[in-house]
Design a protein around this nucleic acid. Structure first.
Length: 114
RNA sequence: CGAGGUGAACAGGCGAUCGCGUGGCCUGAAAGGGUCAUGAGGAAAGUCCGGGCACCACAGAGCAAGGGUGCCGGCUAACGGCCGGCGGAGGCGACUCCAGGGAGAGUGCAACAGAAAGAAACCGCCCGCUUUCCGCAGGGAAGGCAGGUAAGGAUGGAAAGGCGAGGUAAGAGCUCACCCGCGGGACUGGUAACUUUCCCGCGCUGUAAACCCCACCCGGUGCAAGACGCAGGAGGCCAGUCGGUUGCUCGCCGCAGCCCUCCGGGAUCGCUUGAGCCAUUCGGUAACGAAUGGCCUGGAUAGAUGAUCGCCCCAUACAGAACCCGGCUUACGGUCACACUCGCAUA
RNA sequence: GGCCCCGUGGUCAAGAGGCCUAAGACAUCGCCCUUUCACGGCGGUAACUCGGGUUCGAAUCCCGACGGGGUCA
C-alpha cells in the first residue's frame, strides 16, 4: 500500500527539483510539482548523520506523512531533511510536515475520503 | 576497602493499538484482500589480509618484473589469523608487548660535534738522535727530527670488550684469573626453536620499517563479476607489426561472423543450506578435530524493524545486512566470574 | 557495494632521512616611500591531519585511525 505512493527514480527526483515549488522550515524542505498521481520521496543526505540516523529520519518522515495520505492533493512531493532534523523529535516533525503541506496549499478542502 | 590483571556472555524485556518487507496457505479472472510465521550486528563499520563463487582458455608451462611474508612446532579450506613453546623487552606482581632470518656476500648512509665513525695518532705518555741554556759533575729544562704507544682526554646515540694483577722505556688480551659477548665443536634435555656443561678460536660499531641476499607464497578482474532474454543505433577488424592476456618465450582459441567495442533500454536469475548453528560424548595442555542427535535462522532494490501508551528501579553507548564465509583493526555501554595480583585495615 | 588517489601557514604549493629553527607566491599585520591611495622596498605573525613504531635522529620509512576527492551501472 505504502510502496505505490513512493517516488523512486532519480530522474523523477531531478524533475521535482527543477520544476517544483519549495517551502521550508527549520528542519525540513518540501518540494512540490503537479502531477496526476500521488508520489512522495524522501531525501536525507550524508551531511545529516550516519546510516542509522538517516534511516531513522526517513522512517519517521514516512510515518508522519502516512496519516495525511487521504487529505493530500495529487502530485509529486519531495521532502528533504536538513542536518538539524537529526535532533528533532517525532512530534515536531509531524507538526512541520502538516505546516508545510498547508503552506503549499496541498490539503484537500473538506474530508472527502479516498 | 582501594588499585589493577585475565576471561566470558549480553546488547533492554513484556503487553496493547496503528504501520512496513519476505515466505507459506486460503480467496479472487486479475488487481488485490485475509490469515499464520518470520525479519540487522558484535562490531553489520574500516576494506587491512585470507578464501569460496563468477568470467577471462578446462586458468596452462617456463623465465623475468612486481608485491607480500619471515624464531620453532601445531591448528586451519586458507591466512599477514589462532594455540602452545623459545628468545628478548616492560612491570613489585598477576600479566602484557615484540615485522623476532641474514650486517663472516656486496653497496650505501651515520648531519652537528669530535683527533678519529671502521679500523684512527690531535693532545698526552715514552725511547733514541740533535740544538740551546743551567750545573764542576751525575744530570736537568726548553725546542726540533725520526719513531713507539690506544692507559688518560673534551665530543657523540655509538669510540674499538670490563675490572684487577703481571709486564714494559711508555704502553697494549701482550700474558694470566674472573666476568661479558660472538662463532664453531662435543655433550645433557627437547620433534624443533633453544638450552645444560665443557673445550677451542675470536673481541668483529649501528642501520636491511636503506638498496640488497636467502627461504617460502602470489595469474588478472571483481556480484556494478557474470548468466539468460529483448532488440535499436554507431563504429571496428579479412591471416599478422592482429586480438583474447602487464613484459618475453611456448602452448591454446578466434578472425566477415553465431565476432568485437561503445551508446541506449530491462531488472528474470545470480540471492541464500552454509568451511552453518545448538547440545552431549570422546581425543588433544590448547587452537581444533571426530561421532551422535536436533534446528532452518534476513534477502531488500530510493533500499524493509517505526510511532504512541503502560509496567518492570531511572533505563542504554557504538551503531543498520546489500553475493557469502574465516580473521585483523577501529568505535562503544553497563554486567558477571576468577583457589588471579598488589596495597591498606581487621581477625 | 567495489576499486583508486591525496592530506604541509587563511589559499596555492616545494621539500623525499640530518644543511628544517620547513623554501616560495598570494593574503594578513607593522614600518618606509607618497600630499593620500595604489605600485614598490624592508621586517613580522602563521603550517607538516592524528596516534603508535623503526632509527642516535621522521614532514620524509612502516602500521593503524580520521578527513577529503575521483571512478565503475
Amino acid at each position: 500500500m505504502e510502496r505505490q505512493y513512493r517516488l523512486k527514480k532519480n530522474r523523477a527526483f531531478q524533475y521535482v527539483y527543477r520544476r517544483g515549488q519549495s517551502a521550508a522550515c527549520r528542519d525540513l524542505v518540501m518540494l512540490h510539482a503537479k502531477g496526476r498521481e500521488l508520489k512522495v520521496g524522501f531525501s536525507v543526505s550524508k551531511k545529516v548523520g550516519n546510516a542509522v540516523t538517516r534511516n531513522r529520519i526517513k522512517r519517521r518522515l514516512r510515518e508522519c506523512f502516512r496519516p495525511c495520505l487521504g487529505d493530500v492533493k495529487t502530485g509529486l512531493y519531495v521532502i528533504v531533511a536538513r542536518p538539524s532534523a537529526a535532533k528533532a523529535t517525532f512530534q515536531s516533525l509531524k507538526k512541520d510536515v502538516r505546516y508545510l503541506l498547508k503552506k503549499q496549499g496541498a490539503l484537500k478542502e473538506g474530508n472527502r475520503a479516498e
